[in-house]
Design a protein around this nucleic acid. Structure first.
Lengths: 217, 217
DNA sequence: GTCTATAATTCGATAGAC
DNA sequence: GTCTATCGAATTATAGAC
């Protein structure tokens, strides 16, 4: 059981939030990711985000002081979970199994949370104005680290001599394509694309080509 | 040598355009593809398109009656050339060589004309409001046709038993990724990504994985 | 055909009552 | 905390002079 919000302490930098405040913030961010994913930063309107969580525009702006602040918050929130499975690639694991698992998880993320993928695609497509610095620092370091792992695997003869960076890009491109271009895939395949098992089928096809393509030969 | 524009004939439905008109229209469309690719439909402004081809806003609207009309024109213009190499896949050619050529051409298109790729990515990402019908008709038919070709190749034992549709999506995703996400690639790879020969390197990596991955086994 | 000026609209953000 | 009302900036599109 929890008491009412404790009095604000001017000395603390992080102000505590009531449960209502927390709930409202979360509702806003959930609505925002949908709208930003569908329309991009410029195309999204505060009004639509507000309406989607049953709030008025000024009330929403009571919680976030600007449209850009909501956008940054949503991006930051998603960035961590988006990279987690990439970080999880284990240098000591079996190369083919590690990559199989990564591809599978990444494709599942496209299926379960296409909006997160679309959000990033939009941001990067428009020049990454907000996460540009993140890409040049943390992502760059992380990719270099994992590229080194793959190169090591190649050196051990456990993988064919492929370029680690282009392999990583291929995995990202292929898996995220199913989220970012879902409209096109649905248009081409019709109802088939929405059926249960579709993503399993896609996963098998992708794994079959890539894993066989990087097998030592 | 050419005389001045001939008098308009009210009976002809297609009105002839003077050379100046033609040149101006082309200049507008060239500027428009850059701006739409960089900012999307909503983010692009007529003012920026106009400025980029040394024109005033009202003057540009003398040639195209609305922002949407420019956008549709640019999309239509690019759609044909975009699909041409896909149509060129020859059912009677050698499967591996046909796909090698297609992947190579597609990657070169991403290198030479990234804006066309970004334009489509934006349009599809936002639900394909303009080219949606095209995707469901002409593109769908074309993909079905080529899928049949690939399936036939598989049946002949010239390719491993892979799903044709997912192979096509993988090729599209991977090659277009280098245009659509060029900012991310540049951020991760630094100056290396801009160097001459980078796309050749990418092409070799992609071809190495995919072509080996679909080889009969 | 090209310009200046401006109408009309949309949208982010704020003021201030409750 | 939430609302109504509204300001101000940006932007599409048009009117009308030249």
């Amino acid at each position: 059981m929890q008491v009412k919000e404790t009095k604000r302490n001017a000395a603390t930098s992080a102000k505590p939030l009531s449960r209502i405040q927390e709930a409202n913030r979360k509702a806003i961010l959930n609505a925002a990711i949908e709208v930003f994913a569908a329309s991009g930063f410029r195309g999204a309107t505060i009004d639509e985000i507000a309406t989607r969580c049953g709030m008025s525009k000024p009330n929403l702006l009571y919680y976030f002081k600007s449209k850009r602040q909501i956008y940054q918050q949503v991006l930051e929130q998603t960035l961590g979970e988006w990279l987690a499975p990439f970080e999880d690639i284990d240098p000591d694991g079996d190369p083919i199994e590690e990559l199989r698992r990564y591809i599978t998880v990444k494709l599942k993320m496209s299926e379960d949370n296409p909006n997160a993928s679309k959000l990033f695609a939009n941001e990067v497509l428009h020049g990454a104005p907000v996460i540009g610095e993140f890409l040049e620092t943390r992502l760059k370091n992380l990719v270099n680290e994992k590229a080194k792992v793959i190169r090591h695997w190649v050196g051990e003869g456990k993988l064919a001599p492929i370029d680690p960076y282009h392999l990583i890009f291929m995995i990202w491109a292929t898996t995220q394509h199913y989220a970012d271009f879902d409209v096109q895939i649905r248009a081409v395949l019709g109802t088939q694309a929405g059926r249960p098992g579709f993503y399993e089928q896609a996963g098998q096809a992708i794994l079959s080509i890539i894993l066989y393509g990087i097998r030592p030969r």
